Amino acid sequence: MNIFTYIIIYLLICALIITFIPAVRNQWKDFIINPTSYSYKDKRLAIKIFISLLLIVMIIMFFILTPLLLPLLIKYDRKNRKREKTDIKDDNLYFWRMGGLGQIQCLNCSYQEEILSFIHGLNTSSTGLQCQSCGQFHSIKDWQDNKHLYCGCGGILEREMPVFCPECKSKKIQYNMSFIA
């Protein structure tokens, strides 16, 4: 269930509550069954009362149901995000599986390099990316996910792809973190 399903359920509950409030229901039923007994002003007043009560109950239900549904929505969102990341069942090393600043070592050719995965301060952050063509590692300050960046060689800098050795292009990499923030 996504957030729109919860909103629809919420609106249906509000509509049902309004429908079954006896004072409003009886007045509305009388108005529908015998509309000629009401003058034009009475009809407008009945409609205004009905809409006002509908809005009041919806606002009250919002304040009652929001604290009840919010933990469910947050739990659902976290569950989906975790599922996206954990569905990958390979042994490759990804930037999002690493943290901080550390050293990678290729298990095939013993290549070593100090790289930055992700560190942050109060108002700034630095993110590590790897060129998918030449394998060079880059550190970008205050990077945003929606920006596509390119290496000097013309390759795309990527964070979501597996980290590979710049020398032999092997994906058998080991990461030893030395600093985290």
Rank of each mutant, 00 (worst) to 15 (best):
I8Q: 14
L11C: 09
L11E: 08
L11D: 02
L11Y: 07
L12N: 06
L12S: 13
C14K: 01
C14G: 04
C14L: 00
A15N: 05
A15Y: 05
A15H: 04
L16E: 05
L16K: 11
L16W: 10
I17C: 13
I17A: 14
I17V: 15
I17K: 03
I18S: 11
I18E: 00
T19H: 14
T19M: 14
F20S: 11
I21C: 05
I21A: 08
I21D: 05
P22W: 13
V24T: 08
V24R: 05
V24H: 03
V24W: 01
R25D: 04
R25I: 08
R25E: 08
N26I: 14
Q27V: 04
W28Q: 05
W28Y: 09
W28M: 12
K29G: 07
D30A: 13
D30Q: 11
F31M: 07
F31C: 03
I32C: 12
I32N: 12
I33Y: 10
I33P: 00
I33H: 12
I33D: 11
N34R: 10
N34S: 13
P35T: 10
P35K: 10
S37P: 00
S37C: 01
S39G: 15
Y40L: 10
Y40V: 09
K41L: 05
K41Q: 07
D42W: 02
R44G: 10
A46S: 07
A46Y: 03
I47P: 00
I47E: 00
K48V: 06
K48I: 05
I49D: 00
I49N: 04
I49T: 06
I51P: 00
I51W: 08
S52P: 00
S52E: 04
L54D: 01
L54W: 07
L55W: 05
I56Y: 03
V57D: 01
V57S: 09
V57F: 13
V57A: 12
I59T: 06
I60P: 01
I60L: 05
I60W: 02
M61T: 03
M61N: 11
M61P: 00
F62W: 04
F62A: 07
I64Y: 08
L65Y: 02
P67V: 08
L68K: 11
L68R: 06
L69P: 02
L69R: 03
L69H: 02
L70M: 12
P71R: 09
L73S: 13
L73M: 14
L73P: 02
L73V: 11
L73T: 07
I74V: 13
I74T: 05
I74M: 05
K75S: 12
K75R: 12
K75F: 09
Y76P: 01
D77F: 15
D77S: 15
R78E: 07
K79Y: 10
N80Q: 15
K82Y: 02
K82N: 10
R83A: 15
E84C: 09
E84L: 15
E84V: 15
K85V: 13
T86A: 14
I88F: 14
K89I: 04
K89Y: 00
D90M: 02
D91C: 02
D91A: 06
L93D: 09
L93V: 13
L93H: 08
L93Q: 08
Y94A: 09
Y94N: 10
F95A: 03
F95V: 04
F95G: 02
W96H: 15
W96L: 11
R97M: 12
R97W: 06
R97C: 04
